[in-house]
Design a protein around this nucleic acid. Sequence first.
DNA 1: TCCTGTGAATTAGTTCACAGCG
DNA 2: CGCTGTGAACTAATTCACAGGA
Lengths: 210, 210
Amino acid sequence: MPRKIADSTVRRLAVYLQFLEEFQQHGYPTVSSTALAERAGTTSAQVRKDLSFFGSFGKRGLGYDVSGLVRRLHDILGLHHRYRVIMVGAGRLAGALVQYAGFRERGFQIVAVVDTDPEKIGVSWRDLRIEDAAHLDTIIARERVEIAIIATPADAAQETVDRVVAAGVTAILNFVPVQLHLPREVDVKNVNLTVELETLAYALTHRRSA
Amino acid sequence: MPRKIADSTVRRLAVYLQFLEEFQQHGYPTVSSTALAERAGTTSAQVRKDLSFFGSFGKRGLGYDVSGLVRRLHDILGLHHRYRVIMVGAGRLAGALVQYAGFRERGFQIVAVVDTDPEKIGVSWRDLRIEDAAHLDTIIARERVEIAIIATPADAAQETVDRVVAAGVTAILNFVPVQLHLPREVDVKNVNLTVELETLAYALTHRRSA
DNA sequence: TCCTGTGAATTAGTTCACAGCG
DNA sequence: CGCTGTGAACTAATTCACAGGA
């Protein structure tokens, strides 16, 4: 396990894993870097380089054993473990994410939902009761939460995240378009949906001038 | 307007715009590259370089005129125009995205929602009636749609997108964890929520070994 | 022969550092 | 002076190209 792996590499590994699981379900025993690259939208050299940072998993002349590589990628990404996740904020996006089957399937289990709105507190989403965000620290300790997903209104995000971090959470997935200011030891990933649409707008307007 | 701008640069410009609009609302007349960088989580040199690809918008010794720069970034990103967007798929994530105020505020107007499920067709979301995906091409033409957001089940995504593209849409925001195969002239942005969580899992498991 | 694994070459992206204008 | 704008230097990421094992 080497020094420092680029974020872009880690993201591609997660993508490879998705397609490998598909191959696995279709019963393919092996896969070449070329076949995997085609599916994942990259090049065979990139696939081999990405994997080579972690070891030599393939057989020359043959390719990679699908099930074996799935296992290795699970280990590399740290998915052998089930992660306990809190959803902070109970708006529509939060609701969609809580219901999103893909998370649970891949070992991310949402164990609590909190909000500050008295209208929402007490309401149940599936088998989860929305709790009062005032008790954030107690809930995080009780549920042994490791990851927080932030989906609050913009003006509440920083304050809320400070409390989440104070309660011991060190990994955050942030959907709020705000730059969170946090200690270095906390990992944050930002998902900014308007940025995605705006890059499309950019592509649309600058296309003709190529 | 130069040759080829890196995707990373375009994304940062969109982020700068978000913070500049905040500065504008707070009534700040000017902003320095340092102040903007701090907010956006980058460096002042990066801010200046990003902007310099498109022109010289600042005043030496003073910084950037906030309102002026907001206007320039609007133009650069192509946000002077209102985009007509179709939501393909009417599941929970689609619902959350349709309601998401941020899109409309920034000029992305969802003008139609389609699904194949007879239970959903005819149901209204806000002022939008969910229509039959069988009529995708008619709807896209009728509503003069320019951007499609894909939020279907995984196995329907490619087929659906083929029909969307055949109907003339050239910009796609894809939330389905599938690699879409499309003609080069179509722009696609993929948002893969499990990949985001898995990079956090990677960070969590590899932290201690640093 | 086929396809991996990997140094070397290349290309892309970021940071430095400073000239020059307000 | 202060802060931008920008080549030049540097660092990171991708692609090439081929040696070598199955």
